[in-house]
C-alpha cells in the first residue's frame, strides 16, 4: 500500500457510512410510500433515528456480558468496513490480498460470532433465541456461500480480486454464473439479517438480538446492518459484475454505481418476500441450493477446462 493509500484509507469508513445512510433513506422512502406517508419523511428516517438514538440512554441488564455485548454491537460495522477494504476500484485497491476472496469469507464468519454474541451478551431469553436463530440460518447459508465464492475463483483461476476482475474483460461472470450470484446475493441478505432472512431480529421474538439495545449500541447495530449490506453488494461487483469496467466514467464511480444497483435489488427483496421461518431454511439450503451450486461449479470448471480460461 502506498503512502497515498494510507491517507485515503480513512475515507473508507466514511464512504461506507454514507452509502449505508443512502440505503437506509431509500428503504425509508419505500416504506413511506407503502404507509401512505410523505416520501420526504421516509428520506429523513435514518437521520432522525440517529439523532434520537444519540440522545438516548444506553442500557444494560442484570447479568449481561457487557464486554462481549458491546464488542459485538460495535463490531458489525467494523466487519463491513474490513470487507470493503479489499474491493478493487478499477486498478486501485487498498489491500491487494492474494486471497481476497477468502478474506471476505473470513469476515463473514466473523459476523457469525458477532450476531451470536449480540444475542448472548444481553442475558435475555429473546435475544438468545435470536442469536441461535442466526446460527442455524448461518449453517444453512454458509456452505452454499462458500461454493458460490469458489465459482468466480475457478473462473479466474485466482483468489486475488484484481485477477478475478480482469478475467471478466469480455464477459461478466454473472452471465455464466447466475446461480453463484443468486446464492451470493441471498447470503448477503442472510448475513445482514435482512428481509426474508431476518429471523434473528424477528418481530415474533420482539426484535431478538436488537431487543435490549438502546442508544448508541442500537445505532451501531442498525447502522452496521446497512453497512454489511453495502459491503456485500460492493463485493459482488468485482466478483460478478466486472469490477470498475464501464464507459466514460472513472472505474471508482462505476464500482459505486453497480453497488447501488445491487443494493436496490436487495431492498426490493425485503418487500417481496416474507420472512422464512428458521427451522424451514436448512431444508431448502441443503437439499436444493447446495446441489445447484455444485452443478454451477461443475459447469464453470468444464467451461474453463475446455476454453482454457474464462470466457
Amino acid at each position: 500500500m502506498s503512502d497515498g493509500a494510507f491517507v485515503l484509507v480513512v475515507l473508507v469508513p466514511v464512504v461506507v457510512a454514507v452509502l449505508s445512510a443512502v440505503t437506509a433513506s431509500a428503504n425509508g422512502v419505500l416504506d413511506a410510500r407503502t404507509n401512505g406517508a410523505q416520501l420526504r419523511t421516509g428520506f429523513a428516517v435514518p437521520f432522525q433515528e440517529t439523532a434520537r438514538l444519540l440522545r438516548q440512554q444506553r442500557r444494560t441488564l442484570p447479568g449481561a456480558d457487557s464486554l462481549l455485548w458491546r464488542i459485538s454491537s460495535a463490531g458489525i460495522g467494523i466487519a463491513a468496513v474490513l470487507k470493503v477494504l479489499v474491493i478493487p476500484l478499477g486498478g486501485f485497491t487498498f489491500a491487494d490480498l492474494p486471497v481476497g476472496v477468502v478474506w471476505f469469507n473470513a469476515m463473514d464468519v466473523l459476523l457469525w460470532a458477532l450476531w451470536w454474541l449480540l444475542g448472548w451478551g444481553a442475558n435475555s431469553s429473546w435475544s438468545l433465541i435470536g442469536g441461535y436463530r442466526f446460527l442455524s440460518q448461518a449453517l444453512a447459508y454458509e456452505i452454499p456461500l462458500m461454493f458460490a465464492l469458489t465459482a468466480p475463483a475457478i473462473g479466474a483461476g485466482s483468489l486475488r480480486l484484481l485477477t478475478v476482475q480482469t478475467a471478466q474483460t469480455h464477459v461478466w461472470f454473472v452471465v455464466w454464473m447466475p446461480v453463484a450470484f443468486l446464492v451470493f446475493a441471498a447470503s448477503v441478505v442472510a448475513f445482514a439479517s435482512w428481509g426474508p432472512f431476518q429471523t434473528a431480529l424477528g418481530a415474533d421474538i420482539t426484535g431478538g438480538v436488537l431487543l435490549e439495545l438502546s442508544g448508541i449500541d442500537r445505532l451501531l447495530v442498525t447502522g452496521g446492518r446497512y453497512a454489511v449490506l453495502v459491503a456485500g453488494a460492493g463485493f459482488s461487483v468485482p466478483l460478478f459484475f466486472g469490477g470498475g469496467a464501464g464507459p466514460i466514467l472513472p472505474a471508482g464511480v462505476w464500482v459505486v454505481l453497480k453497488t447501488c444497483l445491487v443494493l436496490a435489488g436487495l431492498l426490493t427483496v425485503r418487500r417481496l418476500f416474507p420472512t422464512v421461518r428458521p427451522d424451514r431454511l436448512a431444508e431448502i439450503a441443503w437439499v436444493i441450493v447446495v446441489p445447484l451450486t455444485l452443478l454451477q461449479l461443475a459447469v464453470v470448471a468444464v467451461i474453463v477446462g475446455v476454453n482454457g480460461g474464462a470466457l
Binding site: T41, Q48, R52, L53, P62
Partner: peptide
C-alpha cells in the same frame, strides 16, 4: 428490573413527523 430482564415491552418508535420544530427529536 431483574425480573423483567427478559421482557419486551411495547413501544413505538416514532419518527417525528413533518413539523420542523421536531427536527432533531425523535420520539
Amino acid at each position: 428490573h431483574t425480573e423483567t430482564s427478559d421482557d419486551a415491552g411495547a413501544g413505538s418508535d416514532t419518527s417525528p413527523s413533518e413539523s420542523s420544530s421536531m427536527a432533531d427529536t425523535d420520539m
